[in-house]
Nucleic acid binder design. Structure first.
Length: 564
RNA sequence: UGGGGAAUGGUGUAAUGGUAGCACAACUGACUCUGGAUCAGUUAGUCGGGGUUCGAAUCCCUGUUCCCCAGCCA
């Protein structure tokens, strides 16, 4: 590398393979990948890793990436998922162009190829029941036994297979199997099932078929038909690669390279479709798009940006061993993006009324506030200031500890973009609870600067009481109390670690008037509090925000340490 | 006890026989009209044991630990 060149970003092991293949011309320079979800559930952050890998590689190497629905099991798949998956991939920022495919579109071609394998003596119709098949398969340490139907004539196999297709036999009565090796140490090679009989309506092919191909048979064919060069999948398919290769070799068709990588695991969450489904079905969350869910739709509703998710997928890297990424890394990527892009506004979550005693009753000033200090082009806006305001309850302490430098009796602080104010009195109710603060302001500090150069230690956010819009704010914490939700006592499951405080709903929050017009999915930073996103539950007269993530909070850390 | 994979700070990753680097987290400090952001710094790692080599995270031997596989799911 020349001295002045910046070093190229380190390639992960998959990109190294692709780069090498391009260099050697293995696929004539083509790079064709695919993201092949089964439409049986919603996409989650783990899928995002795979999506970014496949679409990312295609984009980086001048290739293309197909979106292909691997819809070979009509009993589990629904059109609803096909729609949500497309929406999520698109939202993440990827484009498959013309290349939207369905495994079910290849059913006829797959059938013809199966016939070809039968003719070559490499597949046979087996009459064993599911239970018998399992029994004949043997175990991890003992070889299996050959099916009594293994040596049927080619003619009989052809006839039976056609009749399977024609619907002459009931579900489960027969299968088509590859004739490989019942003693193979890799159980996947012990005469794997290629077709099962399923009299079920398919979301796309309807009743056209009553035999459906198994994953191992179908997947490689789908890849082959589409001319995929690099078939990237997760680690658990490593054991299946010999079978992937066997089928393609037996047919002598285009043979992509299967490459496996490790799934994503995240602390404080679960990632399997099965477990996410349970959370939904058992009502632990409000649905697939509950903002606490690691689903793409949940994260979108929570306020995540596609950019943040893509950056996260980039920095976590790709490898072949299981690892669990600290959810704080995800939040770091989130804050990094939101900090650059989110307009700042002021909102008070737990209002405490403040009366500025020396401020003229009825007077309203429009003060200028910066929309985004990280982005000058975002401009400024006007915020109304008046005699009665709300500040955050947490921003006042009657008896402040040494490191607390917000408002306290007799202390002066700045109200952001407004004035310096000094607390002169504390009003309490009959139970001794603080209900109101009386303050004075210094008119000379208008805009937030003191001409005499005096300093204050804190700047508080605030909202004019008269102009405030009421809002509901939903605060979220981790769905689980343990880093690893699977860590449970004997006989319990991950639901035992559900965090009872993962959702806290605040009503009567006060937001600056500009927020009255906020639209669903719009993102803001509430100054000093965190990033918030308008929830779709928002309706005229009812503004609802989700807290996406808090700002880093060193005061919270100090307080926590002092508590210990 | 069969077969297939894999082990680098607390976490995620680089280094492909030649100075163990980066990021997150944690901790200091500077700055600040967000206790935000930013900036500077600190702590901390090659699974164990042998070997080859001038030199090993990397090669060899050996041990240990972890993951995946016995669906007519994908």
């Amino acid at each position: 590398m020349a001295r002045n060149e910046t070093p190229a970003e380190k390639l992960d092991f998959i990109r190294q393979i692709v780069a090498e293949d391009r260099r050697t011309g293995k696929w004539d320079g083509r790079v064709i990948t695919r993201f092949p979800p089964e439409p049986n559930g919603y996409l989650h952050i783990g899928h995002a890793k795979s999506i970014c890998l496949n679409f990312g590689i295609a984009a980086e190497f001048g290739g293309r990436c197909h979106l292909r629905f691997d819809d070979t099991n009509p009993t589990k798949e629904e059109a609803e998922y096909v729609e949500s998956i497309q929406q999520d991939v698109r939202w993440l920022g990827w484009d498959w162009g013309e290349h939207l495919y369905f495994g079910s579109d290849y059913f006829q071609q797959m059938y013809d190829w199966a016939v070809q394998l039968i003719q070559a003596g490499k597949a046979y119709v087996c009459d064993l029941t599911a239970e018998q098949t399992r029994d004949y398969r043997g175990t991890l340490t003992e070889p299996g036994r050959e099916s009594p139907w293994r040596h049927r004539s080619i003619e009989e196999n052809l006839d039976l297979f056609e009749r399977m297709k024609n619907g002459e036999f009931p579900d489960g009565s027969r299968t088509l199997r590859a004739k490989i090796d019942m003693a193979h140490p890799n159980l996947n090679l012990r005469d794997p099932v290629m077709y099962r009989i399923l009299h079920a309506a398919h979301h796309r092919t309807g009743d056209a078929w009553c035999i459906y191909p198994m994953y191992d048979w179908a997947h490689g064919l789908e890849d082959s038909i589409e001319g995929i060069t690099h078939s990237i999948c997760t680690l658990e398919f490593e054991n299946h690669r010999p079978l992937y290769d066997w089928f393609l070799d037996a047919l002598g068709v285009h043979h992509p390279q299967q490459i496996e990588f490790a799934r994503l695991n995240l602390t404080y969450t679960v990632m399997s479709k099965r477990k996410l489904l349970r959370l939904v079905q058992e009502g632990h969350v409000r649905g697939w798009d509950d903002p606490r869910m690691p689903t793409i739709s949940g994260m979108r509703r929570r306020g995540y940006s596609p950019e943040a998710i893509r950056e996260f997928c980039r920095v976590i890297g790709v490898n072949k061993f299981n690892s669990t990424v600290d959810v704080q890394l995800l939040e770091h990527c989130l804050r990094q993006d939101l900090n650059k892009t989110s307009p700042r506004v002021m909102a008070v979550l737990r209002p405490l009324k403040v009366v500025i005693e020396n401020y003229p009753d009825g007077q309203v000033e429009e003060l200028e506030a910066v929309n985004n200090p990280e982005d000058p082009s975002a401009g400024t806006r006007k915020v109304p200031f008046s005699r009665e305001l709300y500040i955050e309850q947490d921003d006042f302490m009657e008896e402040p500890p040494k490191k607390f430098y917000r408002l306290a009796p007799g202390r002066e602080v700045r109200l952001r973009y407004a004035y310096f104010v000094t607390c002169t009195d504390v009003v309490k109710d009959a139970d001794g609870r603080i209900v109101e603060l009386r303050c004075t302001y210094d008119p000379a500090t208008r805009g937030g600067d003191a001409p005499d150069g005096r300093k204050v230690k804190a700047t508080l956010h605030w909202v004019s009481a008269e102009h405030a819009v009421d809002a509901e704010v939903r605060l979220y914490e981790h769905l689980f109390t343990k880093e690893n939700p699977e860590e449970v006592e004997e006989g319990r499951d991950f639901t035992a670690n559900l965090n009872p405080d993962s959702l806290q709903v605040l009503t009567g929050c006060k937001a600056e008037p500009s927020l009255a017009r906020a639209k669903p999915l719009e993102r803001f930073q509430f100054e000093r509090l965190g990033y918030f996103c308008v929830d779709p539950d928002t309706a005229p007269g009812r503004v609802v925000f989700n807290r996406t993530v808090t700002l880093r909070d060193t005061w919270a850390k100090v307080r926590q340490k002092d508590d210990q």
